[in-house]
Simulated assay, not measured.
Amino acid sequence: MAEPIIEVEDLVKHYPVTQGLLFKRELGRVKAVDGVNLHLDRGETLGVVGESGCGKSTLARLLLAAERPTSGTVRFEGRDIFALPRRELRALRRRIQMVLQDPYSSLNPRMTVGDIVGEPFAIHPEVAPKGQRRARVQELLELVGLDPDHVNRYPHQFSGGQRQRVGIARALALRPDVVVCDEPVSALDVSVQAQVMNLLEELQDELGLAYVFIAHDLAAVRHVSDRVAVMYLGKIVEMGDETRIYEHPTHPYTQALLSAVPVPDPERAGLDEQVVLEGEPPSPLDPPSGCRFRTRCWKAQDVCAAEEPALEAREGSSHPSACHFAAERAPGPVPDPWRPVQ
């Protein structure tokens, strides 16, 4: 098998919580990402799903080397990106780009769309000489379905979906191999979400891109992902290909998430058992001992508090799950809002 383009091993990111202005005293650490292992193959889409605050966006920043980890490694084509000299890391960043969540705040309102999409060329002038930049920007706008003659317009002159297309064009300017999409459609209307999701799929087929697609919308993740990683309180609790995760979830948290997805078919509404979680997620400043999900889990027993379950495939399970009592449970069909109900 070919070597994965990105490999993450024992990745940890803790943020210190301090008190005092002059003599800062550390009160504790927020465990945003706490021992994540995963890989991304060329040309595939890895979906990362979980509740707000589970560490998804922190993981995205670590993959981009926008932050340094407390410990652990991120290898790009076998090289640890945090051990690279600054010049090599700068060159590597050309190959890993990001599409941000909110198209209304991620674009500078004082810059034209042409300047926004062309800004990466100013940072990496070797990609496009000055005389070729306008033509290259127009090609990128056309690639994402926008009028190339609108290079002199400002972001406020575009709709939300069009602004997100501008953000995608900017991410593609340096011809990356990997694009990290941090909730790229959560701020858009459902009909516009479908257009942007379909565009991302078309670009992947055309350019051979690999995506890390981060979202809390389970239906959106299923629509684009080849494999799915479910995060809870800084850890991956279940991982597998899209079909196994959505049709045969084994971790109680995944089962609860899937049971809460609205079913658009009125003939099926209310037929599938719904799992209702009680309470709020624990604080990442002081997560529970053992299994972090045990305080909300209906399967929890004494062993769950004493021993942290490893992310591995257990008897009766077809894919890795971090649960002592992992067992497959069919949640019923998870709807895809971009495909008609059969």
Rank of each mutant, 00 (worst) to 15 (best):
G161P: 04
M197H: 02
Q342M: 10
R294L: 02
A169Q: 10
A65V: 03
G28F: 09
Y211K: 03
L277G: 08
C181L: 12
D336P: 12
A194P: 00
D41A: 14
G316H: 06
E202N: 11
Q301C: 00
P129I: 11
S57G: 14
V263S: 11
P288G: 05
L277Y: 01
V30A: 12
V48P: 02
G161C: 04
A229F: 04
V117D: 09
H14L: 05
E328P: 02
S225R: 02
R61I: 07
V30S: 07
E139C: 01
V8R: 05
V276K: 13
A91N: 14
P125Y: 10
L207I: 04
H251A: 03
V228N: 05
E206G: 01
N108I: 13
E312I: 14
I96P: 01
P103I: 06
E3Q: 12
Q301Y: 00
Y15D: 01
R136A: 07
D241F: 09
M197T: 07
A256R: 02
S283T: 13
K31I: 11
P129K: 10
K13G: 07
A326R: 04
P4W: 05
P16H: 12
G20F: 11
V196P: 07
G279F: 06
G78L: 11
I96Q: 02
R90S: 12
G72S: 11
H319T: 08
P340R: 13
V275Y: 06
A32S: 14
R296F: 00
D80S: 13
D241E: 15
V196C: 12
D336I: 08
E307N: 01
L257C: 10
A173L: 05
G290V: 00
L203V: 12
H223Q: 01
Q204R: 15
R134E: 15
A83I: 06
G234W: 00
D149E: 15
R329Y: 06
H319Q: 11
I81K: 10
